[in-house]
Nucleic acid binder design. Structure first.
Length: 423
DNA sequence: TCGGTTGATTTAACACCGCC
DNA sequence: GGCGGTGTTAAATCAACCGA
C-alpha cells in the first residue's frame, strides 16, 4: 500500500487528549472557514485550503503558510495553555537566576519551535521542509507553520519565517540546541543573500531540563514518553517523526497535500506540547503547590540549583526531601551536609553527616570521611576523628575492588596513622 | 618557614542521548 | 544513522590555613 493510501485510511486521526481536543479542532476548522480564499490564486493552491494552508510568495518562489489559533482555555493533557502566562509571571517574581527563568521576558516573546527535516544527518545534504512554532499573542496561542513545497523554494520559506519572528527573541525547543537550530543555521547560509539575517535568540532547550528531572525514572526522555508519563498527553494515530522524510519525498512526487497532513499535525502538537512541558517544568522548579512533585524531582531540582550557584534554593529543596522517607533521602542529607559545610555551618553539617554515617552504604563512607575531617580540623576532637576514620576504613575495605576505591582506602590508612600520632 | 591538608576551580576526556 | 550539547569523572593547579 502506498503512503498516500495509508494516509487516506487515517482520516479523522490526530486526535489529542480525547473530547476536548476534538471539539477544539472542530472550532479551529470553523474559524478557518471564515477566512477568505483568494480567488485569484492558481487552482493548484486550492487543495491546500482544507489544511488551512495558503501560499506566500518571494519572487518566483513560495512557501505554504498555515496559522491555527488555540484559545488560552485549551486543555492539553494536564495543563491549560493559560498557565504559560501564570508561570512567566511567577518567574518574574522569583528571586532566582535559574536557566529556565524568563525573568525580564514577556510571555509573548517566547517561540516554541520545532522543525521537520528530510533526515538526521547534518551538513547540506539534509533539508528542513517545515519550520513550525507557536507563541502567545493577543490572548490566544498562534501556531504558525512554513512549509517547503519544493527544493527550489527555500528562500521563500526562510524569508517569510524570519520576517514573522522578527519581533520575538527567545526559542524554546526540544533538543533544538543540537538538532534544529544548527540545521537552520546551515540551511540559512545557502539562502542568506535573499533573506533576513538570523536573529540572536535566547534559547531554552527543554530536553536537558527533562533529563535532569526524569533521567532515572522514565525509560527514556523522548518527547513522546515525557508527554505520556508527565504531561498526561496521549497522542492518537500520530504520525511519528521518523516517517516524516518518507512522507515528504512522497509529497514531492505526488504534490498531494493530504500526504503531508499528518506531519503538519505532528509538528503542530509538538510545539503545543513544548508550552505544556515548559509550564510543568517551571512549576516544579518554582515549587508550586498546585503541582504534585515527587521527592525525586525535588532532589534533582535541588542538585540543579546547586549547580547553578543557588545554594539557598538548593538547601530548601534538600530539606524537603530529608523530611520524607524516600530512597533518595540519604543522598539529599549528604548533599545538604556538604552544602552547609561550604557555608561554614559546621554544626548543622555535622548533624547531616551523622544521619548518613549510621547507615551501611557507600554514602555512609563519604559521610564518615567528612565527619573525620570536621572533627580533626575544625572541632579538634581527634578521638572522634579517629573513630570515623576507622569506621570509614572498615566499610571501604569491604567495598574496595576498583582502583579508585583502593585509593580511598590508602588515603584513609594515612589519615588513621596521622590521627593516632596526634592523639 | 615549610610541608601537609583541604577546597575551589579549571581542563580534558569520555559516554550518553534524542532529534528526523 | 550524524551531530552536538550535556553530565560525569579524574587530574591538575592554586590558594588558604595550620601545626611543627
Amino acid at each position: 500500500m502506498s503512503l498516500k493510501n495509508k494516509l487516506s485510511r487515517m482520516k479523522g486521526h490526530m486526535q489529542l487528549d480525547g473530547r476536548k481536543a476534538s471539539e477544539q479542532e472542530q472550532k479551529n476548522y470553523e474559524d478557518h472557514s471564515n477566512e477568505k480564499s483568494d480567488a485569484k490564486l492558481p487552482a493548484k493552491f486550492n487543495q491546500w485550503i482544507p489544511l488551512k494552508g495558503k501560499p506566500l510568495f518571494l519572487e518566483e518562489q513560495y512557501t505554504i503558510f498555515r496559522e491555527i489559533h488555540y484559545p488560552l482555555d485549551f486543555q492539553l493533557g494536564n495543563t491549560q495553555l493559560s498557565e504559560l502566562k501564570e508561570v512567566v509571571r511567577l518567574w518574574e517574581g522569583a528571586d532566582t537566576d535559574h536557566p529556565l527563568s524568563t525573568k525580564g521576558i514577556d510571555a509573548e516573546q517566547l517561540i516554541f519551535f520545532d522543525t521537520e527535516t528530510t533526515g538526521l544527518g547534518g551538513g547540506t545534504g539534509n533539508t528542513i521542509f517545515l519550520l513550525g512554532y507557536c507563541h502567545l499573542e493577543d490572548d490566544v496561542v498562534k501556531v504558525k507553520q512554513f512549509f517547503l513545497p519544493g527544493p527550489a523554494d527555500e528562500a521563500a520559506m526562510y524569508f517569510h519565517f524570519l520576517q514573522d519572528v522578527n519581533d520575538l527573541s527567545n526559542l524554546v525547543t526540544y533538543n533544538g540546541k543540537a538538532f534544529d537550530w544548527p540545521q537552520v543555521k546551515t540551511r540559512h547560509t545557502l539562502v542568506r543573500d535573499k533573506v533576513p539575517l538570523l536573529p540572536k535568540f535566547g534559547h531554552y532547550d527543554l530536553l536537558h531540563a527533562a533529563r535532569r528531572l526524569w533521567k532515572d525514572t522514565l525509560p527514556s526522555c523522548r518527547l513522546t514518553i515525557v508527554e505520556k508519563e508527565i504531561l498526561g498527553i496521549e497522542r492518537v494515530d500520530d504520525t511519528p517523526g521518523s516517517l516524516a522524510p518518507l512522507l515528504y519525498f512522497d509529497f514531492l512526487k505526488e504534490k498531494d497535500p493530504k500526504i503531508i497532513e499528518g506531519v503538519l499535525k505532528h509538528n503542530e502538537y509538538d510545539v503545543l506540547s513544548l508550552i505544556v512541558l515548559y509550564v510543568q517544568l517551571s512549576k516544579r522548579i518554582l515549587n508550586c503547590e498546585d503541582v504534585s512533585s515527587t521527592m525525586k524531582e525535588k532532589y534533582e531540582i535541588a542538585r540543579w540549583y546547586e549547580k547553578v550557584k543557588e545554594p539557598m534554593k538548593a538547601a530548601e529543596m534538600y530539606e524537603e526531601v530529608v523530611k520524607s522517607n524516600v530512597s533518595c533521602r540519604d543522598e539529599a542529607l549528604l548533599a545538604l551536609g556538604l552544602l552547609l559545610k561550604k557555608q561554614k555551618q559546621r554544626d548543622e553539617a555535622m548533624d547531616c553527616f551523622e544521619g548518613v554515617a549510621i547507615k551501611e552504604n557507600a554514602l555512609a563512607i563519604t559521610a564518615c570521611i567528612e565527619l573525620a575531617k570536621l572533627f580533626e580540623h575544625q572541632f579538634k576532637d581527634f578521638d572522634k576523628a579517629l573513630y570515623y576514620s576507622e569506621r570509614a576504613y572498615e566499610q571501604q575495605k569491604k567495598a574496595a575492588r576498583l582502583l579508585r576505591e583502593k585509593k580511598t582506602l590508602d588515603d584513609l590508612k594515612a589519615r588513621i596513622e596521622r590521627l593516632r600520632k596526634k592523639r
